[in-house]
Amino acid sequence: MIRAESAATEDVAATLEEYAAAWTALDLQRVADQWDRQDHEVTYIAEELGEVLVGHERISEHLLRTEHRITTSRASLRDVHVRELEPGLVLATFICRWDFEWVAYSRVSAVLRRRGTRWLFAHYMEAPFHMEDWDGQNRT
């Protein structure tokens, strides 16, 4: 569960839960649809790539290629912190546990922008790291 301190952070928390649920369902089109299509400079810095993906089309292509290489998935978020930078723009940081055929952890920072009633990624960056203990609880 993600704690939220304002209406904006509550809505962003729901977006992040949807992001994790889409990964768990291996619905990577649904994951890709969480990047802002109106902004042609949206970015995704994936830990497995040596380049920064810029633009919704490139991000979507990468995610959809990934969809066919993974047979099982579960994404769990914890230590989620959402800070409103200005109205309609937030910074979210969290730890993600990835359960594929292997287990991996990433620290994530993301900038999300409100478009109508939805919050969409404008920037997303993963940084892998080792984590000994994981109890699945949000500690923030």
Rank of each mutant, 00 (worst) to 15 (best):
I2V: 01
R3N: 15
A4W: 08
E5Y: 12
S6R: 10
S6Q: 02
A7F: 09
E10R: 13
V12W: 12
V12H: 11
A13Q: 06
A13H: 11
A13C: 10
A14L: 10
A14W: 11
T15G: 09
L16R: 15
L16F: 07
E17A: 13
Y19W: 15
A20Y: 05
A21H: 00
A22C: 03
W23V: 00
W23I: 00
L28F: 14
Q29H: 09
Q29V: 03
Q29N: 12
R30Q: 15
A32M: 00
A32H: 00
D33R: 01
Q34S: 05
Q34C: 07
Q34R: 07
Q38W: 09
Q38M: 04
D39V: 00
V42H: 02
V42M: 05
T43L: 06
I45E: 08
A46P: 05
A46E: 07
E48R: 14
G50I: 10
E51L: 12
E51Y: 07
V52Q: 15
V52D: 12
V52P: 13
V54M: 11
G55V: 03
H56L: 01
H56F: 03
E57A: 13
R58T: 03
I59E: 04
S60T: 11
E61S: 13
H62S: 12
L63C: 03
L64T: 01
L64H: 02
L64D: 01
R65N: 09
T66F: 15
T66Y: 14
E67N: 06
H68P: 02
H68S: 12
R69A: 05
T72A: 13
T72Q: 15
S73Q: 06
R74N: 06
A75L: 10
A75F: 14
A75C: 08
S76E: 11
S76W: 09
L77Q: 01
R78W: 02
R78M: 06
R78K: 10
R78T: 04
V80D: 03
V80N: 02
V80K: 04
R83K: 08
R83Q: 09
R83N: 07
E84C: 02
E84I: 00
E86A: 12
E86N: 08
P87A: 11
L89C: 06
L89K: 08
L89A: 08
V90S: 07
V90M: 13
L91I: 12
L91E: 09
A92K: 10
A92Y: 04
T93H: 12
T93A: 07
I95H: 15
C96W: 04
R97K: 10
R97S: 04
W98N: 01
D99N: 04
D99W: 05
D99F: 05
F100M: 09
E101D: 11
E101V: 00
W102T: 14
V103H: 12
V103N: 11
V103W: 08
A104Q: 15
Y105F: 14
S106D: 15
V108N: 15
V108M: 09
A110S: 14
A110Q: 07
V111I: 15
V111N: 14
L112K: 10
R113W: 08
R115N: 07
T117C: 08
R118H: 14
R118I: 04
L120A: 04
F121H: 11
F121G: 00
F121Q: 01
Y124D: 13
A127Q: 15
P128T: 08
H130N: 07
M131S: 11
M131T: 06
M131A: 10
E132M: 08
D133H: 15
W134I: 06
D135C: 04
D135G: 02
N138V: 06
N138I: 03
N138A: 06
R139P: 08
